[in-house]
Nucleic acid binder design. Sequence first.
DNA 1: ACAGTGTATCAGTAATTAATGATATAGTGA
DNA 2: TCACTATATCATTAATTACTGATACACTGT
Lengths: 115, 115
Amino acid sequence: MQTLTSAQVTDLKAKLFRGFADPSRLSILNALRKGSLTVGKIVKATNLSQSNASNHLACLRDCGLVTRSQKGNFVYYQLSDERVAALLNLADELLADSAKGVYECTRYEVSETEK
Amino acid sequence: MQTLTSAQVTDLKAKLFRGFADPSRLSILNALRKGSLTVGKIVKATNLSQSNASNHLACLRDCGLVTRSQKGNFVYYQLSDERVAALLNLADELLADSAKGVYECTRYEVSETEK
DNA sequence: ACAGTGTATCAGTAATTAATGATATAGTGA
DNA sequence: TCACTATATCATTAATTACTGATACACTGT
């Protein structure tokens, strides 16, 4: 068991947050809030392409946010810890209060697929 | 006051998390946990270059995580909400439990500046 | 108005990242 | 073994991002 430098801890924390920092991954995490799902169900729920979803799932696993369990031909993913959902909830609350400000921020660009 | 689509909410949430998802910004946020600081103090605390710190501060402001207040020649930054610190705390806890797994993950690369 | 200090912005570059389509792997049942 | 389904990986491309050094702006005191 090795002790980490504070810079290493910071890198790990950044990595953890990076898992949350992409709309595709957030939509996956959101779908998993209700429980574990197969990759196929995740693809349907999120409208991501299969390979893209698979890549993001690998990323989420890499960040420690989800775990994987194989059952026959299917692979189930689920949130790795209650606190993953708790982080999502906290972010929801924070956004609910500050969304207006962020939304109006000049740098923010809404994706073109939305009206 | 406009209602946001769920995709817009997802984009905003991703943007919020992106603020946390970089080691430089995390070290800034960490420095600000104890209270507000001038840019100069932040630069010293983080070892970032002045322009780099300034860019990250703009980013953090853009993500809604910090606020800015000017006093004479100095600019003070501070966390915009208690919940920003709460998110950092939650991430700390999550990491404390799962650090081992994340640390051992094959994809993770420790920056070369560390031994 | 000027010099000095603190902060922000700009242009350029290198590196990282997300997405796609095609292909590979692994499990299932006949 | 074979055909089939589910998932993962690969190669490529386009887009985004972090950083640096130089410069600009803003405030202060003289």
